[in-house]
Nucleic acid binder design. Structure first.
Lengths: 181, 181
DNA sequence: CGGCTCGGTTAACGATCGCTAACCTTGGCG
DNA sequence: CGCCAAGGTTAGCGATCGTTAACCGAGCCG
């Protein structure tokens, strides 16, 4: 594993535990086995670590969403694939999920705008499928429902009680039920 | 409105936007119309503001949960009342909801322990009702399901698109469906 | 009136932060 | 060998933070 990746992984864990502002560069360096300013050999600054982290996961989420939408035609099938993809991500990257909606506001302006755009596009994929299932669903209601489903699925990190497999089936079932499948 | 309460309300809003560590005492004072250290005439410190905020909302949530459990006998009815109570709280105190699961870790030790205890008791109320509905639900699964429902309901602040009434019916319906009512 | 409390001010202290500078060591290579 | 780039180190700078200290005006009350 490259040093860059080690820093990103460690930072995700620390940021998830104590928040972006609650982790110093010295903390982060120490957790990586080096001390303090060595981090600047790999990143332009503390902000840049957060930015790379959040932009890349937003891109990954959106790409998976697009793939799910392209792989099926029936909106129910697309939604099932979307839930699957999102649940898998949340289980595999619990720390990133926490950081994403906690420290979003600490991003530098450019990165924050990029993340915002990516997330909006991702929400639109969900909302479109929800609207395709029937005319009773307005676009805003669909967007709000998508956010609610994200909240449900993203609750994973807050309850580490179940083995991953059980958690996956529980969350998938609850999310699909909530979305009225 | 007392000065204390004004500080608490303003702090909830600011903490929700920028995080506990992202708001300085000077910021908080300025937002209240005074400047900086005047805050110490009302609170022992910045920590104490966060502590009072989170302890009081945890207590309020738990009290409402207990009332809901005492008001009905059928577990489905209790769950409906719990969802109602939680949705109402989330809609009325969006900022507090954000702060609670973002800045929980910034609490001083004593307050963090108290909040943890209160929240655990609250989760148990939900979990017990879920278990009472059938033997197929293990206790850990019930706890995880409760957390997932919280995540769903607490997504409110992230999507301010719908009027409160529409949001309330949407979230209530989704939460009950997710819980398998 | 005299004094006390309450709620505010500004100044300043010590700690910590992100970041830069200067230096050192190691490995690959012409 | 000589050199350079990569990836570390420590020292230290400037800014900002939470907090305290010292002071002050308004209002209440004996």
């Amino acid at each position: 594993m490259s040093r860059r990746q080690q820093i990103l992984d460690t930072a995700a864990e620390l940021f998830a535990q104590r928040g972006f502002h609650g982790v110093s560069v010295a903390d982060l360096g120490a957790a990586c086995g080096m001390s303090g300013p060595a981090l600047y050999k790999h990143f332009a600054g503390k902000d840049a670590v957060l930015a790379e982290m959040l932009v890349s996961i937003s891109r990954w989420l959106l790409d998976g969403g697009r793939a799910a939408a392209a792989a099926h035609t029936d909106p129910d099938d697309v939604l099932a694939a979307l839930v699957d993809h999102h649940v898998g991500f949340a289980l595999e990257h619990r720390a990133l999920i926490v950081v994403q909606d906690r420290d979003w506001s600490s991003l530098p302006d450019a990165a924050r705008e990029e993340v915002r755009t990516l997330q909006l596009a991702y929400v639109e994929i969900w909302a479109e499928q929800l609207c395709r299932r029937g005319p009773s669903m307005t676009r805003d209601r669909a967007r709000a429902a998508a956010h609610a489903a994200f909240g449900l699925i993203n609750s994973t990190p807050h309850s580490g009680l179940l083995p991953d497999d059980d958690m996956r089936t529980l969350l998938t079932g609850m999310a699909l039920a909530a979305l009225g499948g």
